[in-house]
Amino acid sequence: MMAQSVLHKANTRSIADHGWLKSFQTFSFAGNYNPERIQFGALRVLNDDYIDGGTGFGEHPHDNMEIISIVLEGALKHEDSMHNVAVIEPGEIQVMSAGTGIYHQEYNKDEKHPAKFLQIWLFPNQRNVKPRYQQERYDSRLLPNQFTQILSPDKEDEGVWIYQDAWFHLGKFDAGVHLEHPLKKEGNGLYIFVIKGTIQVNGQDLAERDGFGIWEIESLQINTQTEAEVLLMEVPMNF
């Protein structure tokens, strides 16, 4: 098996600057189109969003997409057509299975300070499901220098669940840590996003906000060069 990979350095991402919102987009999104960066397997959107205080996304629709939000700083207030009203804070993950269709809106809860969050979309493995919402804290389960599962396809497993054979793991690490991370399912790929710090993955150096997709592998070898926070997204490459 010969490993295949794709590197997306932080400074190669598209930028959408709307004044109140600055969005750094790994893959093609809205008006930013790059035919070579449409998706990584089932991973369709990875937006690194900065929202000014007191602003946010007005009501808008989604359908047939698994939509995941991970807040890094600040807090987001969420409301949707399923009558959910919630605040998402750092250390929490939110998922919506849009299915047959939903409307939602998200605003920075703080009037003065910016909020930062990752907006992630995955193609589902079932279409036109009944829309659903789920939110869960994961920070209380984080152990130092280990990856913690925060998303899976199994309702009974750790973390939130989605309609896709995908697993997300997040970890915070000291410098000089070495670990191996196995894949959950044969044929899947792994997309690594460095939230903070610098690391090396299977010999590839990655810095803050770099993305690295790798597939046709059985496991990852990760070495942290500084203190680091890392998100691993395992997704089907063919679906």
Rank of each mutant, 00 (worst) to 15 (best):
A42L: 02
F212E: 10
H8V: 03
S28W: 01
Q134E: 04
N34G: 07
I214W: 13
H62K: 07
Q204L: 06
F57N: 05
W121L: 07
G171V: 01
N84K: 00
H60E: 02
I38A: 15
V129T: 04
E92I: 00
I192C: 11
D165A: 11
A98F: 05
E106F: 03
D174R: 03
Q146E: 15
I214F: 15
Q146R: 03
N34F: 11
E227C: 02
I51R: 09
K109F: 15
Q105D: 15
M65E: 11
L151T: 02
Q119H: 07
P236W: 13
V160R: 08
T100Y: 14
A115I: 02
V45W: 08
R137I: 00
R137S: 01
D154Q: 07
N32I: 12
E208I: 02
T55A: 09
Y103E: 08
S81T: 03
L142G: 04
H178S: 09
D165E: 13
V85M: 14
E234I: 00
H18S: 12
E59P: 02
F29R: 11
D80E: 13
T198G: 10
S69G: 04
H62Y: 02
K184Q: 11
Q204A: 14
V129G: 13
V230Q: 12
E136K: 06
I93P: 02
M237A: 06
I195N: 09
L76V: 01
W161H: 02
I70D: 06
E136C: 04
L72S: 07
E136H: 05
L170C: 08
V45F: 09
E158Q: 05
N47G: 10
R44E: 08
Q225T: 04
A98K: 09
E136R: 05
E66M: 02
L206F: 12
V85K: 12
H18C: 03
I88T: 00
F123N: 04
A98M: 03
A10T: 11
L231I: 00
N125I: 12
E106C: 06
V85Y: 07
G213W: 15
V85W: 04
A207R: 08
Y33D: 06
E66W: 05
G187K: 06
Y50E: 12
F117Q: 03
E180M: 09
Q94W: 02
Q135E: 14
Y50C: 10
D205C: 14
Y191C: 03
L7W: 10
N202Y: 10
G54R: 11
G41M: 02
